[in-house]
Structures are given as C-alpha cells and as structure tokens.
Design a protein around this nucleic acid. Sequence first.
DNA 1: ATTAATAATGACTTCGAATGCAATATAGAT
DNA 2: ATCTATATTGCATTCGAAGTCATTATTAAT
Lengths: 335, 335
Amino acid sequence: MSKQKRVTSYDVAREAGVSQSAVSRVFRPGFSVSKKTREKVVATANEMGYRPNAIARMLITKQSGMVAVILSSRANLNYPEVLSELNKELALNNKRVLLFTLDDADELDELLENIWTFQVDGVIALAAHFDSKSLDLFAKHSTPIVLYNRNVPESNANTVCCNHDKGIKQLIDLLHQSNHKSYLIIAGPDDSDVANERREIAQNYLHTLGIQNTPVIYGDYGYKSARSALENWLKTNTLPDAIICSNDVMAIGVIDEIKQNLNLSVPDDVSVVGFDGISAASWYNYQITTIQQPMKQLTKAAVDILMERIENPQAAAEARVFTGSLITGNSIKTR
Amino acid sequence: MSKQKRVTSYDVAREAGVSQSAVSRVFRPGFSVSKKTREKVVATANEMGYRPNAIARMLITKQSGMVAVILSSRANLNYPEVLSELNKELALNNKRVLLFTLDDADELDELLENIWTFQVDGVIALAAHFDSKSLDLFAKHSTPIVLYNRNVPESNANTVCCNHDKGIKQLIDLLHQSNHKSYLIIAGPDDSDVANERREIAQNYLHTLGIQNTPVIYGDYGYKSARSALENWLKTNTLPDAIICSNDVMAIGVIDEIKQNLNLSVPDDVSVVGFDGISAASWYNYQITTIQQPMKQLTKAAVDILMERIENPQAAAEARVFTGSLITGNSIKTR
DNA sequence: ATTAATAATGACTTCGAATGCAATATAGAT
DNA sequence: ATCTATATTGCATTCGAAGTCATTATTAAT
C-alpha cells in the first residue's frame, strides 16, 4: 500500500548478477552486450517491471527527447489537427510533444524561461509571433526553432509555410477573370501575422490588377465576427461583386449573413472566397471556392527541418513553402 | 560558435561566492535565505543567464511536473479545444502537458511503457478506452489517471463526464412531446465507448416510452459518413419523424443530405437532434437543437481531480458528472 | 554582556542512467 | 598451445539540483 519504490537499473543488475553498466547497455541500442547477458537482463527486467527512467537519461545525455510546441490563441481553427499531426510525426522521430500556450505577447518571457528550463531539443511555434530578438535567444541557447505557417523572408528563421501569395492570387484571378469589379476584404485579426500577410497580398494584388482602394474590414477569424463586421459595413456601403475572406469560417459567416439578413444568395448576388480548406467549406450549404492548406506536408516538413537542426545545429536556416490546392466550390459567379 | 556550455548552479555559486546549496535555495520557494545572499545570487544568475535545470530537479524530487494527455483518433471533433483548455488549466497548477496519441488498441502496451518511462505525475485520457486491467497498471505504478468524458459506473476510476443520460432523454422528451412517432438513430463508431453509451441511452429510453425497435445506423462521427449512412438506409426505408444523431457533425450531414438529395427540409419534413453543442450547430443553415457539453467545467474538473490525486494518491476514486445545457435550435417540428 | 533561540550557510550525499577507461574474456590465427 | 585481435564487462565518474545535517552567524531576551 505504501508508495512503491521504483525499480532501478541497480536493482535489476543485482538480481541478474551483472553490473549496472551492463543493464544500461542492454537498454541502449547499438551497444555491445553478449547474448547471454542480454537475455538474463531482459528476463529479470521484465520480471521486476523495470523500465529505464527517461528523466535520468535526459540528465546525463543532455537530450530531453521533448519538443516544445507553442500554440497561440490567435491560431486558426485548423490548428488542433495540426497539433495531432505534428505529434504523430514527432513520435516517429522518437520525440514527445510538450505543449505550451502563448496568449499574450507579454507572457513571452515567462514562456521562454519555461522552455529553457525544460531543456527541450527543439521548438515548433504555431502562429505565434516571434521577433528577431526572441529568435536570437533561441540561437543563443542553441535550441532549434521552426515557425509553422509563417513566412519571414528577411530573417534567417526556419519556416514552413503555405504559399499564401500564390493561393490568394489564384483566387483573385478567378474572380477577376469572371469579371468581378468591386471587392471587399474581410481580414483576420491584425495582431496575427498570417492574417496581415493574407490581407496585404490581396490588397496589393487587387491594386496590381488596377482595382484601387479595396475596402478592408476585420474579423477575428470567427463566424460571428465576420457576420457582424459585414452587417456593420453594409449600413453605410453597398454589396461589392466579391468578398475575399481571410479564412473559411469567416466566408461561411459571410454567406450566412447574406442569406439570412439580406435575403440574397451566394454566388448569384455576390461571390465569396475563403482560405484554408476546412471540411465545413465543402458542406452542401457553402461549397466555398478556397485554397486548401497542405497540412500534412507542412507538418511533415516542420518536423523534418527540426530534426535536421537538432542533428546539425549550425546548418543554415531554411524556409519551405508549399502550394495549397485550389478547391473549386460554387461560390464564384461568372458575371 | 561552439556548443555553448550550460550555466549550472555551481557556476553561479562560484561567481557569487556562495555554496551551490545557497543557489538552489534561492530558486526554491519558501526556503530560508538571507536577503543579502538572495540578492547576490539573483544578480549573478541573471547576469550569467542561469535557469534551474528542470530535468535535474525532476530526478531528485521525483516529480516531473508533467501530465500525460492521451488523445485517441476516435476522439470527437471538439477534443482539440478540450486539449487547449486542459493545457491552460494544468499550467495554472504548474504542470505541463506531454502529449500522447493512441490510435490502435494494440499500441497500448507501447504507450504505457512510454508513460512510465517519462515519470509523469498523472494522466488524463481523452476518449481512449482503458479496461480495468490497464487501470490496475496505473494503480500499481501509483500514477493517477482521470478519464475524460467516460462514465464507468462499476469501476473505481476517476472520471469526469457529461451527463449523456439526462441530455439525451431531454432531447427525446422534446421530440416525444411534440408528437414524433417514428425514429432513427445515427450512432457513432461502435468502437467508441461514448458513441455506444449515447446509442444505448437513446434506444433504451425510446423503448421506455413505448417505441420499440428503433432502427440504428452507424457513422464515424463525420459529415460524409452520416450522409452516406442515411442515403443507404433510405434505399430500403422511408424517412422517420425524427433522427437522433450522436453528435452535431452527423446531424449537420443529415440535414444536408435531406435537403440536397431528398429535396426536403428540416424540421418541416423531419426533425433532427444532435449532441455536443459545437459552434457550427448554431450556424444559420442548421440551428440544431442539441445539448452543449460543459467543456470548461469538464476540463477544470478533470484537472482538479487529477491534482487531488497527485497530492493524495490513496484517496478514493471519484466520478463527476456535469449536466449539459439544452440549446434550442430550430430542428424540431411540432407535429 | 551573556545566554538562549533562531536563522543562514556549506559540505556532502542523493536521484538513476550513461559512458570512458582499464581489465578481462573470448575467438581467431598460426 | 600460444599469441593477437576483438568483444564484454565492471568500476568509477558524471549530469545538475535538492535536501539533510551539523555548524556558524544573527537576533532577541534577560
């Protein structure tokens, strides 16, 4: 009934009549042990219920086998899936995910303290903003970090990213080619880097196509926020030909707002495009034309880069960009 | 440029002209250190960039400060949010989440090995099935475990759970009172305990109300699965008065299937209820009458119970059940 | 000033596995 | 059988912080 004492390598060694080193070597791959000893040790270990203590191993090898994954609340809705995918991918590389969340920028210091403390082998940051000062800190601690879905061309950070530029231009081309003249952009929260990137790309490209001063309104990536943003805007403006939404959830909100409150329909009265390719985007009531993020490629690449950096910390930074795939829905009208 | 050597408590001690013990005490709360020493140590520590090594601390204190969270792929769609909520709640208790996934039952042994290895302080299992044999193993290792959203009345496991019984009966009462006579149940995958529980409750309660042999068809909790299950079933059957879906996503699938392929509508031609209270359930096109799981209460309770068990491992097992709240949508017709 | 009570300190050991090194055993060659 | 070359083995040390305990400094009380 008492707090049961853990079985250590010494216990097994004593019982099996070998040294502690021998036990240790049996549980390390690629170390030289005679068949006889190995069998003896494995047998007693199983009998006694011995498992090497990962903590002790971490201390001496200076490898925790853990990767910090930083989630920010600004994360887009498909991030949970990303997390589970990352976890699987990292498990294949014998790494465990230690989860951290970063909600306020001013918690950053505390977060970093925590990360150093846990001696993680590497870090993957989802949608969190890291300025170059923080990135330098990672370099100083020689902790590799990969930024997920961020594109920081000027910096020398490791990043994986969906090609927002290409994707958004592709959507806008579709709209432009089918003769849409006036546009409205519904952007994500302006403290999200991804949101800003998507907004800017759309603004600039429309400008390039000769469409000046496209209005922008802001949501928080959520359904309601898009609806009320649009509702507000329409109090003093008229419906454009097309609405470019920074993600699918907001596109869904927009479609519902148009249907319910304006009694109009998409794409007949206005075209809508989204971004992300979440599953709801293809539900019968929406069928949004959007860009699907290549999530599995992105997560795999993030893990690959991280593993490479853990192996070889001085390697140069790398940015991998993946092209999303166009999902042709039924939310664009040919005018 | 070389792999930089970590700063240890000895380094700080030497620099500050105190003993290593002194440094250690400065960084432990509630230990007796003179103001002078504390200031000296804190100053040099900051200067040298010293942070206590959590791994070494774990080894000596035998507390890893980590809680394993086990995700199964059978998890319902709202689990990602649960994960992030759990993480926050645990962080408040100074615990970190170490993520594990369990996809196949036959990976269980490996998973458990891993968990013991990492010396986690406790475990929270989301939707994963643990038989009493595995639960005994946790007891043997004196690792507290809390099952999230499982109700195992006979066992002495720690569980938190939404009151499926009450919720589902509430929904069925609504249907029954508004004069629905014939029913169809769309259940979740039959290797999910929660799915089976929900199905059984519905079946039994309908039976209690005098409605015999309600047909059951199965989906996998996903949109498409519900649509095709219903489509198949309708090849040889006619539409019932009401369809009881084991989760909201399948209810959404059903509504779309009815609209798109049958050209009928909900609730005019058939009533539909769901379960979970996900955000999409209240989107304009669906407005499902459903039961919202009290997710924050559930997660908080799971963490509370776990913390109590970590404090006091011999305490008796506890099951906390929370009542979900009815969301009145527009998917039930008064007949 | 003296004593008693308390606070602060450092030397040393501990946690549990990994590993360099020297010692020993085994296999292979002649 | 003898001598190398190679494979195994165990000893002793290491990782970095925590905590016990005996010692010393400080404070309070008389």
